[in-house]
């Protein structure tokens, strides 16, 4: 579009800066050397085997998966209630309540984790996966509310009334009309909350007790140079999973738009 070559160079440099480090992950994940440096030594899949055999890593991975899934489901469910309330009902103090729900989005995580830690210890709740989930739901819910509010807002109110008018109960109207139409929003919300929870570090570190999660585990492994190639392999696996999830999300989003005849206004890809 632009005839200015410096803008083109800037754009390319920007993309390299953004993606080159990620491109290095598979390179060193398959490199047959414990030292992360060029020149490359040869092809190996040993690091994947090592990663697979690592029990602690496996446990951390399973913990992360449990936490991310649970947090995403709870935050999205809460988000549905909040988004529905904010788009359909008027009640006193609505602005304040919604503001408080959205606040954790801009609040430093450090403050959230510290205050949660103080409260949890004071109340006597033992630190575990459960406490991490509590923290993650807190930071994920604003994102879920933001995504779902826009999904609920684009819903024509007369669709609900039409279903009601045609004999359906409020509950069946929600199930037959509202839910299918906001489903793309729900899937987006689930995926984004899942991702936020999966790579969250501070809350997981503060509130995890002796339960390790993936982000904390990876950070810990960098203290041992010998372990780094296996972490690279793990990183590569995570990138692959992310790309898969993103593709699935985009597929559902586009299918949702095509089905309802809406106009495509951006998205992930």
């Amino acid at each position: 579009m632009s005839k200015n070559p410096s803008l083109k160079i800037y754009a390319i440099a920007y993309l390299i800066f953004l993606y080159a480090p990620i491109a290095l992950l598979p390179v060193f994940a398959f490199n047959d050397s414990r030292v992360i440096a060029f020149p490359l030594a040869g092809f190996t899949t040993n690091w994947f085997a090592e990663m697979w055999a690592d029990n602690q890593l496996f446990k951390a991975f399973r913990n992360s998966l449990t936490i991310a899934t649970t947090s995403a489901v709870i935050a999205t469910a809460l988000g549905i209630f909040a988004a529905r309330a904010s788009t359909r009902y008027k009640f006193p103090g609505k602005g304040g309540v919604l503001g408080l729900i959205m606040l954790p989005m801009v609040l430093p995580e450090m403050i959230i984790s510290m205050s949660l830690l103080v409260v949890l210890i004071a109340v006597g709740v033992p630190l575990s996966i459960f406490t991490i989930i509590l923290g993650h739901v807190l930071i994920c819910t604003p994102f879920a509310v933001a995504i779902l509010t826009s999904a609920f807002q684009s819903l024509d109110r007369s669709l609900e009334e039409a279903a009601y008018d045609l004999g359906e109960s409020p509950a069946s109207t929600f199930r037959l009309i509202i839910l299918p139409l906001v489903m793309p929003g729900i899937i987006s919300s689930l995926l984004i909350c899942f991702t936020i929870s999966l790579d969250e570090f501070i809350i997981a570190y503060f509130l995890g007790g002796n339960q390790s999660v993936l982000s904390v585990y990876i950070f810990g492994q960098f203290r041992f140079p010998a372990k780094v190639p296996a972490v690279m392999a793990l990183g590569f696996v995570l990138v692959c999973i992310s790309v898969c999830l993103l593709t699935i999300a985009e597929y559902f989003r586009r299918r949702g738009i095509a089905k309802t005849g809406g106009k495509d206004t951006g998205g992930f890809l």
Binding site: D156, D165, K259
Partner: peptide
């Protein structure tokens, strides 16, 4: 309630279920 009244409505926006 509206869902048991002997009336049906054609809405201004038509309210056709898009899915």
């Amino acid at each position: 309630p509206a869902n048991v009244r002997p009336t049906n409505m054609v809405f201004q926006s038509y309210a056709i279920f898009p899915h």
